[in-house]
Amino acid sequence: MGCRDSDTADCCRPAVVRAYQEMRGRGQPEKFCLEAAIAVYRWHHPSACDLPPEVMAMVTGWVHEGPRH
């Protein structure tokens, strides 16, 4: 079962964080890295066409928080 079949928002967290970190690691600007992370989130959650501020804050928190243990 993937994110597309799940109600859990953080099911795609590893992919979102990885997209952000890989772009940052290549020296891309913060804005572009965050946009890529949001694009990955949208791919996993196609019904989230208009991202509410809570989702933006969640994705931003994921990428700035670092890896979960």
Rank of each mutant, 00 (worst) to 15 (best):
A15I: 07
P46I: 00
M56T: 11
C49Q: 11
W43Y: 10
Q28H: 13
P67A: 14
L51C: 05
E54A: 14
C11S: 12
V55H: 08
P14Q: 05
P14H: 07
A19V: 00
G2M: 09
R13W: 05
A19E: 07
R26Y: 05
Q21D: 12
E65A: 14
K31Y: 05
E65V: 02
F32K: 14
G27C: 01
H64T: 13
L51G: 06
A37M: 10
R68W: 12
G61N: 08
V59K: 01
W62K: 02
K31Q: 15
S47V: 03
Y41N: 07
G25N: 03
G61L: 04
G2K: 12
V17A: 00
Y20M: 05
E35K: 13
I38Q: 10
E22V: 00
A37K: 10
R42D: 02
E35V: 10
A19N: 03
S47G: 14
K31G: 08
V16K: 03
R4Y: 08
K31N: 14
T8Q: 13
F32H: 06
C33K: 00
R68Q: 12
A19Y: 01
F32M: 13
M58V: 11
V40Y: 00
E65D: 15
C33E: 03
G61H: 01
P46Y: 01
D7R: 15
V16E: 00
E30C: 05
T8L: 11
H44I: 02
V40Q: 10
M56K: 15
H69Q: 13
